[in-house]
Structure formats: structure tokens, C-alpha cells
Lab assay of single mutants.
Amino acid sequence: PTIVLKVSPEELKALEKAGVEIEKIEKNEDGELYITLTPEALKKAGFE
């Protein structure tokens, strides 16, 4: 199962800087950012 999270541009930068593997980055028509994370990326980021 993949996880989709709504993030701010600042959060996205912080995640990328931390080396979190982001599978997909999407922006909706309201300009909101959503990222898709794999279970492996979540484990690496410390989420179980």
C-alpha cells in the first residue's frame, strides 16, 4: 500500500533534503501538493 500525503512546499523541500524517497508529486488545480510514498520510504523516514 502506498501513502498519499498533502504537504506544503516547505515540507516537500524538507522531505527531499532528508532524502525521503518520494514516488510521485502531484499538484491539484488549487495548487495543493500531494506526495505518494512507498512503504519502504516510510520505514526509512521512521514511520511504521
Score class of each variant (00 low, 15 high):
residue 1 P to T: 14
residue 1 P to S: 10
residue 1 P to K: 12
residue 1 P to N: 11
residue 2 T to Q: 09
residue 2 T to W: 13
residue 2 T to Y: 14
residue 2 T to A: 05
residue 3 I to R: 06
residue 3 I to N: 03
residue 4 V to I: 12
residue 4 V to L: 09
residue 4 V to T: 15
residue 4 V to M: 09
residue 4 V to H: 08
residue 5 L to K: 06
residue 5 L to M: 12
residue 5 L to S: 01
residue 5 L to E: 01
residue 5 L to A: 02
residue 5 L to V: 12
residue 6 K to A: 06
residue 6 K to I: 08
residue 6 K to V: 07
residue 6 K to S: 06
residue 7 V to M: 05
residue 7 V to Y: 01
residue 7 V to W: 01
residue 7 V to H: 00
residue 7 V to R: 01
residue 8 S to M: 04
residue 8 S to K: 08
residue 9 P to W: 13
residue 9 P to K: 14
residue 9 P to N: 06
residue 9 P to Q: 13
residue 9 P to M: 10
residue 9 P to G: 08
residue 9 P to C: 07
residue 9 P to E: 09
residue 9 P to L: 10
residue 10 E to D: 14
residue 10 E to R: 08
residue 10 E to F: 09
residue 10 E to L: 14
residue 11 E to P: 00
residue 11 E to Y: 15
residue 11 E to Q: 15
residue 11 E to T: 15
residue 12 L to Y: 05
residue 12 L to M: 08
residue 12 L to T: 01
residue 13 K to Y: 14
residue 13 K to G: 08
residue 13 K to C: 09
residue 13 K to T: 11
residue 13 K to W: 12
residue 13 K to A: 13
residue 14 A to N: 09
residue 14 A to K: 15
residue 14 A to L: 14
residue 14 A to Y: 12
residue 15 L to G: 00
residue 15 L to S: 00
residue 15 L to W: 08
residue 16 E to S: 08
residue 16 E to T: 10
residue 16 E to W: 11
residue 16 E to N: 11
residue 16 E to L: 13
residue 16 E to F: 13
residue 17 K to D: 12
residue 17 K to V: 13
residue 17 K to I: 13
residue 17 K to R: 13
residue 17 K to Q: 13
residue 17 K to A: 11
residue 17 K to N: 11
residue 18 A to F: 09
residue 18 A to V: 08
residue 18 A to S: 07
residue 18 A to Q: 10
residue 18 A to K: 13
residue 19 G to V: 02
residue 19 G to M: 08
residue 19 G to H: 07
residue 20 V to L: 06
residue 20 V to N: 01
residue 20 V to P: 00
residue 21 E to H: 07
residue 21 E to V: 06
residue 21 E to G: 04
residue 21 E to T: 07
residue 21 E to Q: 09
residue 21 E to I: 06
residue 22 I to N: 00
residue 22 I to F: 09
residue 22 I to D: 00
residue 22 I to L: 07
residue 22 I to W: 08
residue 22 I to Q: 00
residue 23 E to F: 08
residue 23 E to M: 12
residue 23 E to V: 09
residue 23 E to A: 09
residue 23 E to T: 09
residue 24 K to V: 06
residue 25 I to K: 05
residue 25 I to A: 05
residue 25 I to L: 08
residue 25 I to R: 03
residue 25 I to F: 07
residue 26 E to N: 08
residue 26 E to G: 05
residue 26 E to M: 07
residue 26 E to H: 08
residue 26 E to A: 08
residue 26 E to C: 15
residue 27 K to C: 13
residue 27 K to M: 11
residue 28 N to C: 06
residue 28 N to Y: 09
residue 28 N to A: 10
residue 28 N to S: 13
residue 29 E to A: 14
residue 29 E to M: 09
residue 29 E to I: 11
residue 29 E to Q: 10
residue 29 E to K: 12
residue 30 D to A: 13
residue 30 D to W: 15
residue 30 D to T: 11
residue 31 G to R: 03
residue 31 G to I: 01
residue 31 G to S: 04
residue 31 G to E: 05
residue 31 G to C: 05
residue 31 G to M: 04
residue 31 G to A: 03
residue 32 E to H: 13
residue 32 E to L: 10
residue 32 E to S: 13
residue 32 E to K: 08
residue 32 E to R: 07
residue 32 E to V: 10
residue 33 L to V: 14
residue 33 L to I: 15
residue 33 L to H: 04
residue 33 L to S: 04
residue 33 L to P: 01
residue 33 L to D: 01
residue 33 L to F: 11
residue 34 Y to I: 08
residue 34 Y to T: 09
residue 34 Y to M: 09
residue 34 Y to C: 04
residue 34 Y to F: 12
residue 34 Y to A: 04
residue 35 I to R: 00
residue 35 I to C: 02
residue 35 I to T: 01
residue 35 I to G: 00
residue 35 I to E: 00
residue 36 T to G: 02
residue 36 T to R: 05
residue 36 T to E: 08
residue 37 L to Y: 02
residue 37 L to M: 09
residue 37 L to R: 00
residue 37 L to E: 00
residue 37 L to W: 01
residue 38 T to A: 04
residue 38 T to G: 05
residue 38 T to Y: 05
residue 38 T to H: 09
residue 38 T to E: 06
residue 39 P to G: 07
residue 39 P to A: 10
residue 39 P to M: 08
residue 39 P to W: 14
residue 39 P to T: 08
residue 39 P to Q: 15
residue 40 E to M: 03
residue 40 E to I: 02
residue 40 E to D: 09
residue 40 E to V: 02
residue 41 A to K: 01
residue 41 A to V: 02
residue 41 A to N: 10
residue 41 A to M: 07
residue 41 A to W: 04
residue 42 L to F: 15
residue 42 L to G: 02
residue 42 L to R: 02
residue 42 L to Q: 04
residue 42 L to Y: 15
residue 43 K to A: 13
residue 43 K to D: 15
residue 43 K to P: 02
residue 43 K to E: 15
residue 43 K to I: 13
residue 43 K to S: 08
residue 44 K to T: 14
residue 44 K to N: 15
residue 44 K to G: 15
residue 44 K to F: 14
residue 45 A to V: 09
residue 45 A to G: 10
residue 45 A to S: 08
residue 45 A to T: 04
residue 45 A to F: 10
residue 45 A to Y: 06
residue 46 G to Q: 10
residue 46 G to P: 08
residue 46 G to E: 12
residue 46 G to N: 06
residue 46 G to Y: 05
residue 46 G to T: 03
residue 46 G to I: 04
residue 47 F to S: 03
residue 47 F to P: 01
residue 47 F to D: 03
residue 47 F to I: 11
residue 47 F to N: 03
residue 48 E to H: 09
residue 48 E to V: 13
residue 48 E to S: 10
